[in-house]
Simulated assay, not measured.
Amino acid sequence: MQSFSDPMSSSYARWTGAFYLGIAIAGGFSIAYVPSQIVVQNDAAATVANIVGKNGLYHLGIAGDVVVMVFELFAVAMLYFMFRNVSKTLSFAAAMARLSMVSVMSAMLFFHAGADLLAQSDQVMTNFSAAQRADLTGLFLEMHRAGVWIWQIFFTMHLLLLGYLVLRSDRFPSIFGYGLMIGGMGYVLDSAFAFAFTDVAWLGTLRIGFLAIVTLSEIGFALWLFIRAPQAPTTLKGAMA
């Protein structure tokens, strides 16, 4: 476990990057791909049929969410210690914002489990018709989707703070810091568009641009950690010693 002992070491940076990349891969599968294969907009009966017919994929999506949350816990802790020497307060605040996001994601799993139970079992809500059960399943999935709007607010806070810490640190290219801070606004814009301003076309277009920036910045930052595995500058190591 020596690789996890020194936040300024190359091996520590490489593990942090590996967890970050793992989040991107598992999250892309569970958050983007699986819903695209299961959820049919405005057709609860078809969505229920997909949950039943593609139940293995549906469960893999839930498993992907669990993997994301496990990797997130490691990323939260490791990023905190990596940037603690830049600012203890801001690094801790960034960690708390990201941990709040993970807490919301954990609660969202109950809605996925409830939708699966309604679709699969005839022993639940037996007084409801098939159409009513399908509508309730759709409601659970919509409540799960609403959870995304909530955790994106916490994630925006995290990215703003993380981007600032990256800029203050002399271990990483500044472009990552600016990209995380500017692009991170795409998440809160996406929440605003989905929740309150669905008819504002320009907002929908603007959020896509910001989300593209933050996606490239996050992946670039993760790859930089994993491939370049930057060590602390010699002067900083001397000061820590």
Rank of each mutant, 00 (worst) to 15 (best):
M1E: 05
D6W: 04
P7F: 02
M8K: 13
S10C: 07
S11C: 03
A13H: 05
W15S: 07
G17C: 08
A24Y: 13
G27Y: 02
F29C: 06
V39F: 11
V39Y: 12
V40Y: 00
Q41Y: 12
A45M: 12
T47A: 02
N50A: 15
G53E: 08
K54F: 04
Y58F: 10
H59F: 07
L60E: 03
L60Q: 07
L60C: 04
V66L: 12
V68E: 09
E72N: 06
E72V: 11
L73I: 15
F74M: 08
A75K: 00
L79A: 08
Y80R: 08
R84S: 15
R84H: 13
N85K: 15
N85W: 12
S100W: 02
V102C: 11
S103H: 00
M105K: 03
A107H: 03
L109M: 13
L109H: 06
F111P: 00
H112L: 09
L117Q: 11
L117E: 11
L118R: 09
Q120D: 08
S121E: 10
V124H: 11
F128A: 15
S129I: 02
A131H: 08
A131C: 07
A131E: 15
W151G: 03
F154P: 02
H158Y: 10
H158K: 04
L161E: 06
L162D: 02
G163Y: 03
G163W: 01
Y164V: 02
L165V: 07
R168F: 00
R168Y: 00
S174P: 04
I175E: 10
F176G: 12
Y178C: 06
G179H: 05
I182Y: 09
G183N: 08
G183D: 13
G184E: 13
Y187D: 07
Y187N: 01
V188A: 10
F193Q: 13
T198R: 11
T198P: 00
W202C: 00
G204F: 01
T205F: 06
I208R: 08
L211W: 01
L211D: 14
V214M: 09
L216W: 15
S217C: 07
I219N: 03
I219R: 01
G220H: 06
F221C: 14
L223M: 09
F226P: 04
I227N: 04
R228A: 12
Q231Y: 03
P233T: 15
T235M: 08
L236E: 13
K237L: 15
A239D: 10
A239E: 14
A241W: 03
A241M: 11
